[in-house]
Design a protein around this nucleic acid. Structure first.
Length: 383
DNA sequence: AACCGCTTTCGTG
DNA sequence: TTACGCACGAAAGCGGTT
């Protein structure tokens, strides 16, 4: 069988690049996409800002301190989606685009050489078109598996192109090191280091079953494959355990029950609306609380039937809140989610729900259809 | 023993 | 030494049922 070829495409500092493209006077400057103020974090920043050690997920306050002359811009998500679509449209001229986030996609380019030319030339052509027609740069990784391609796109950022030939897969894994392998985050890296593993080669010296004993069945076998440059990702599993959730961190901690319930009411509406839009029904409702000391807890409860309407979500939310919270205790973050969702509006035929409940859901759906947004709550963070 | 519900932890963008 | 968002999926560990 012919050799597989995968591209992974990653738009460089995407949000910042769009802002610079829309306002070229920002070019060459440290652009930081973030809300300013406490309890806000950096979404993305230009490479000029990264020179000041600013990076995404960093508290805005810290970014300001590291880069006092940085240009802070609030994210414009609509605009980024628009540009993202334009880029993906270009990519789709070369193959089937598998978009995985607003700024990332991979393409199975196996067997397209006769049509488009050598992978490297195709990648260069894609990059040129995106630069000329959109005005931003991107990085492309090319490899025999999506797993390696993903890490290859990271290798030369920004404006990078990295092709890993299959015979060099192991060499590539060794070159990037444990800390840059997908799926190994901060805590797994520490666990590895604590047991004396500092390089992928160290991991290769140990048989899989030993890794499984040390790191658990899932992580152990993942590490074994990854360090041997074998794609550890599972593409077969259909996606289960769908969930829909929302959470908000208050500008100032909230210790008043009336306010919390008001926020939960808004969230109940939001979750219900999203569940209708996605045509899913949930069996489990979960509440998340973060206290002022950052200690975070969750509570959830499942029902025999399904979550059918806004009231049901709200009532359960309030009930869960009363289990874990007493009036007066300051709350930093509150979140609400629907879990165990099933696709389809009525996955199980009736009998499970009463006629009345069905009518209520229908009513709620109708209300949603009319898009009664007038009652939409203020954003929690403005409270 | 297999499964389920609940909670926490981890990793990703 | 301050600071530390949001949304999602996966997995592990625990206790309880069938």
């Amino acid at each position: 069988m012919a050799q597989k070829v995968f591209f992974h495409v990653d738009l460089d500092a995407f949000f910042a690049s769009v802002e610079i493209k829309d306002n070229p006077s920002l070019k060459g400057k440290p652009v930081i996409i973030a809300e300013e103020g406490p309890r806000c974090v950096v979404s993305t920043c230009s490479y000029e800002a990264r020179a000041f050690k600013v990076h995404s997920a960093m508290p805005s306050v810290q970014a300001r301190r590291l880069c006092p002359d940085g240009i802070f811009i609030s994210p414009r998500h609509k605009r980024y989606s628009e540009v993202s679509r334009q880029v993906m449209a270009i990519l789709s001229d070369y193959g089937v685009v598998n978009q995985v986030s607003i700024d990332e996609a991979w393409l199975d380019m196996s067997g397209t050489e006769r049509l488009f030319g050598k992978p490297k030339d195709i990648a260069l052509a894609m990059k040129k078109r995106v630069r000329d027609e959109i005005g931003i740069t991107m990085s492309v990784g090319i490899a025999s598996s999506p797993f390696i391609a993903k890490m290859a796109s990271d290798y030369n950022k920004p404006d990078g192109l990295c092709l890993v030939s299959p015979s060099r897969n192991l060499m590539f894994i060794d070159a990037i090191g444990l800390e840059n392998i997908q799926g190994i985050g901060k805590s797994s890296l520490k666990a590895l280091n604590d047991r004396g593993f500092r390089t992928p080669s160290d991991v290769r010296q140990v048989p899989e079953d030993v890794l499984i004993r040390m790191f658990g069945s899932s992580m152990g076998s993942y590490l074994h494959k990854a360090c041997n440059a074998v794609d550890p990702w599972d593409y077969t599993g259909e996606i289960k355990n769908h969930s829909i959730s929302t959470e908000t961190t208050f500008l100032n901690d909230v210790s008043d029950g009336q306010t919390l319930r008001q926020v939960l009411m808004g969230m109940s509406h939001e979750l219900f609306n999203r569940s209708i839009e996605q045509s899913v029904m949930a069996r489990t409702i979960g509440l998340k609380l973060r206290f002022s000391d950052f200690h975070t807890i969750t509570v959830q409860s499942s029902s025999d039937g399904f979550v059918l309407n806004v009231d049901c979500i709200f009532e359960n939310a309030v009930r869960l809140l009363s289990i874990k919270w007493s009036e007066g205790v300051p709350i930093r973050l509150i979140g609400l989610g629907l879990y165990q969702t099933y696709s389809g509006d009525s996955p199980i035929q009736d009998s499970l729900f009463s006629e009345a409940e069905h009518r209520k859901r229908k009513l709620d759906k109708a209300v949603h259809g009319l898009s009664v947004k007038g009652v939409k709550l203020r954003k929690a963070s403005e409270l």
